[in-house]
């Protein structure tokens, strides 16, 4: 059984809850570390292990208030991994949350949607 990946939020990194038992993956908060590679590496490693025996449905909830350009590339890499496992034992769905009037975050979701072949649902909320 794949262990859960749980990380608490910090001033520069989001909280992470990746559950291999029910296929619910969540990133929540802000992602603005100076060097995001270090932070995202365990997430990528976890996804590699998850991909070998995924749940039939994988739901990724991205609830980011802010992210920097260093993180944007790492987030793209996460989506690329999810794109690869999609259709091979699991169906991946992405829920992209953004706050009302946050056009920038909505557009950021559209950027990934344009690059990644996964179904994205854009969800506007009052507060993330």
């Amino acid at each position: 059984m794949l262990e859960m990946l749980v990380l608490e939020a910090s001033a520069k990194t989001p909280s992470i809850s990746f559950n291999g038992e029910n296929g619910q993956l969540e990133l929540h908060g802000r992602s603005i570390p100076e060097n995001s590679v270090e932070f995202y590496k365990p997430l990528n490693d976890w996804l590699d292990r998850y991909g070998s025996s995924p749940c039939s449905i994988t739901v990724v909830d991205v609830k980011l208030e802010y992210f920097n350009t260093s993180s944007s590339k790492c987030i793209l890499d996460l989506f690329k991994k999810l794109e690869k496992i999609n259709g091979s034992g699991t169906e991946v769905k992405v829920n992209w949350y953004y706050e009302e009037d946050d056009e920038d975050m909505m557009e950021a979701g559209e950027d990934y949607q344009a690059i990644i072949k996964l179904p994205f649902t854009m969800i506007e909320v009052e507060e993330i």
Binding site: P33, E34, N35, S36, T69, S70, S72, K73, I115
Partner: peptide, 22 residues
């Protein structure tokens, strides 16, 4: 928007953590 998306796709994060997108 288009320039950002193309750069995001082709960018490589340096050892410092920069992605050339700033």
């Amino acid at each position: 928007k288009e320039y950002y998306q193309n750069s995001l796709e082709s960018s490589v994060v340096s050892s410092k953590g920069t992605a050339g997108l700033g």
